[in-house]
Design a protein around this nucleic acid. Structure first.
Lengths: 341, 341
DNA sequence: TTGTAAGCGTTATCAG
DNA sequence: CTGATAACGCTTACAA
């Protein structure tokens, strides 16, 4: 690998001159510039980014931690994040925590050691300020730190869930179950709240309805639906906390010969790519995934910039703790219809 | 951020001593060790990995370039790769080239500048040795460099395709179309070859069958199927080069009221997570995705090790160009049946 | 307009 | 057992 030294030697100039032309900083005569450029081309020299990072104390790298890369929601998010980051000259390190807090913490630490400039965290775990590590630019994705001053971009889960359940109610359902996400995750909690609010609005006692908590996974969808189906009173509709759960539920119905939507209506949340292609196509609440990624990156980038500018002034810039809230949208497809009777 | 210097000062020792205890290299008395450890804990010091990389000329980082993160095949692969890498103490930078050669090249260059120790390349583009850059550890995933000495781990596409088409033939189909991948990608080519071989074996002239090339995408599946359906002679079965294409084809059939499998049988390739959950569930050829990722990482890691060991001896180690070939497996579900008549 | 030298945070070689 | 000191590849005052 050629270094800046080899280029300097070949061009017959000093390393600082090479550096100058490479960064177009400072004056350098046209002829020397050409000399250097030629040497660079001849050697196919590319500046070592690691060395640069060390000097500049920034790596032009972002970290993105997701809980489950197998859930299509996250690849979609990753793509959006990468697009935005890439456009700004950043590369993103994608880390899959597999829903394990330990792994998440380890990644956080790794990223910090690698001088990553900031991280986007889509955590399924309890996020605490300590775990995030001091004054490191972090924006939370689709999660909130309840009342704490952490930046985040999220979707209005309450409204989305409420709208979905209201739709079910409007169709005539009175017996609606909820296959909810993990009990201690804000996203899931908010959806439960929306679910209950809609019910209350319709004059249905939320406490009479079944709410089963579990991970945001296909497997939970299968198991949860099975449980619902074998209970004494089978609901005529089930609102799932995300699409993966809905897919699992759909699968169980198919296996058991339960017709969707005739016997039971199913509604999801997220609108992942596949939702449109299940059979029947899934009615669900769409999250503006692409926009979320974009917004999150913008936010993170501006925090990073602020930080680097504030440094000279002295104090580490007060933490704003802004949150961008995007609106979800109900997408009506074919898994919800009037109840049979 | 605390540095090794601050630790040294706090502990009242020299930086080299701190380094020694941190890397458990060289002798250091129990008491000094404790002194240092305490300082480390107090400061919450973590060694700057970037500086380390610079010294060691290795970053303990792997790059993974995929053509399309939205195709569930790649997240699955990514997950496997990350598992393996992580177990070996490496972190992986996932790059989505979006099927664009330019973006792929840019990433390759970025990764090199970041001193990534090796890269796993799942390219949809034409891969040439020049583009890979000199002697950099690279292993190709699911792609081949036809006859060139590049390491790769792949699946036996020929056999997989052949088996699938033989299955169709056995069901009684004689009019079988192929929605093939990009014309110049080895993976796609091999599948076409398997398709043709199976036909020939069955006494059907491959040249009489329709083969339409296009990207490995859902959209192409839709469009390709539409084209097939509106042609004069509609095939009774279509073999799709991957599952995304098959999903698209399925969608077009549903939209047009064409019954699958009664009117037309559809077979995919990959066995992505969703294949099982389409309606009807997709018959497809399973690739051992997880094993591929694991094998690729092992291979890459061993190349990296070889390289670092060979350096002292002088020569850059002859390029072996090994390829690991895994076997695919036909998974029969419900999208293929006997032709109607 | 260009070169010298210090420094980014570590590790490693060599003396002591 | 421990401490200077020279790298690693690059940027950037500061001189010249």
């Amino acid at each position: 690998m050629p270094t800046i030294k080899s280029v300097a030697k070949l061009a017959g100039v000093s390393v600082s001159t090479v550096s100058r032309v490479l960064n177009s900083s400072g004056y350098v005569s046209a002829k020397t510039r050409k000399l250097v450029m030629d040497a660079v081309a001849k050697l196919d020299f590319r500046p070592n980014h690691v060395a640069r990072s060390l000097v500049h104390r920034e790596s032009k790298t972002l970290g993105l931690i997701v809980p489950d890369i197998a859930n299509p929601y996250f690849p979609a998010l990753a793509r959006s994040v990468e697009d935005a980051a890439s456009a700004a000259g950043y590369v993103v390190i994608l880390c899959n925590s597999g829903n394990m807090e330990e792994s998440e913490t380890r990644y956080l630490s790794w990223l910090r050691q690698r001088m990553v400039d900031g991280v986007l965290l889509a955590s399924t775990n309890q996020v605490t300020p300590e775990r995030l590590g001091q004054d490191w630019p972090v924006v939370l994705l689709d999660r909130d730190l309840e009342g704490l001053n952490v930046d985040s971009v999220r979707v209005n889960n309450f409204l989305g869930a409420q709208e979905a359940v209201l739709h079910l109610v409007a169709l005539g359902h009175r017996k609606i179950a909820h296959l909810a996400g993990p009990e201690n995750v804000t996203t899931a909690k908010e959806r439960v709240a929306g679910f209950r609010a809609a019910l209350a609005l319709a004059g249905i006692n939320p406490d009479d309805q079944q709410v089963i908590h579990g991970p945001f996974s296909y497997e939970f969808g299968q198991a949860g639906m099975a449980q619902l189906l074998s209970a004494g009173e089978v609901p005529t509709a089930v609102f799932c906390a995300n699409d993966m759960i809905a897919l699992g539920a759909l699968k169980t119905c198919r296996e058991r010969g339960v017709n969707v939507p005739l016997e039971v209506s199913i509604c999801g949340f997220d609108d992942i790519f596949l939702a449109e292609h299940t059979d029947p196509p899934l009615t669900t609440v769409r999250q503006p995934i692409y926009e979320m990624g974009q917004a999150a990156v913008q936010m993170l980038l501006s925090r990073i910039k602020e930080r680097s500018q504030k440094t000279p002034s002295g104090k580490p810039a007060p933490y704003r703790g802004e949150t961008i809230l995007l609106e979800p949208q109900l997408v009506i497809r074919s898994t919800c219809s009037r109840p049979a009777n």
